Measured scan of single mutants.
Amino acid sequence: TTTLTYTDEEEARKAAEELKRRGITFTYTKRGGTWEIRIK
């Protein structure tokens, strides 16, 4: 499992869109002031 952490929502959203485009499965979690993208 790879976890990407972002403090900028815009960056996190761009990363999530890129992963979706590649067909990669991930979970997206907001934790306080950070956003976590966990790639399975």
Rank of each mutant, 00 (worst) to 15 (best):
R22N: 08
L4Y: 14
T1Y: 15
E10W: 13
W35T: 03
K20D: 08
A15D: 03
T2F: 13
G23H: 04
R38A: 12
T27M: 05
G32F: 06
G33R: 08
K40C: 14
E17R: 12
E9K: 06
I39W: 04
T3G: 02
L19I: 02
L4W: 14
F26V: 02
T2K: 11
T34E: 08
Y28E: 03
A16E: 02
F26E: 00
G23M: 03
T34Y: 15
A15Q: 07
E36C: 03
E11W: 04
E18G: 06
R13D: 05
T5E: 05
R22Y: 06
K30E: 12
K14V: 07
I37C: 00
F26M: 02
T7F: 13
A12M: 07
R31I: 15
A16L: 10
T27N: 04
I24H: 03
D8E: 07
R13V: 10
L4D: 02
K30C: 08
T3N: 04
A12G: 03
T7N: 09
Y6H: 01
A16S: 05
W35D: 00
T29A: 09
E11M: 10
E36W: 06
T5L: 13
T1L: 12
G33K: 11
E17Y: 10
E17Q: 11
R21N: 09
L19T: 01
K30T: 06
K20W: 11
T7E: 09
I37A: 00
G33S: 13
E18Q: 08
R31Q: 11
E10P: 04
T2P: 06
L19G: 00
A15N: 03
R13I: 14
Y28M: 15
G33H: 13
Y28W: 12
E17G: 07
T5G: 02
A12N: 00
D8Q: 07
G33M: 12
T29M: 11
K30D: 11
T3H: 05
E36F: 12
T1E: 14
T29H: 11
Y28F: 15
I37M: 02
R38F: 09
K14E: 09
A16G: 05
T25Y: 11
G32R: 05
Y28C: 10
A15S: 06
W35I: 13
T7K: 07
G33C: 08
D8L: 08
Y6W: 03
R13Q: 12
K14T: 09
I39M: 04
D8F: 05
T34P: 02
T7M: 09
E9Q: 07
Y6E: 00
A12D: 00
W35P: 01
R13E: 08
L4P: 01
I39H: 03
T29C: 09
G23Q: 03
G32E: 12
K20T: 14
T7R: 07
I37V: 03
G33N: 15
R22F: 05
T29V: 12
T25D: 15
E9T: 02
L4F: 14
E10V: 12
E10L: 13
I37T: 00
E11C: 07
K14Q: 11
R22K: 11
A12R: 01
G23L: 03
R13C: 08
E10H: 12
R13Y: 07
R38Q: 14
T5W: 12
R13P: 00
R21P: 00
R22L: 14
R22D: 04
K30H: 11
T3V: 15
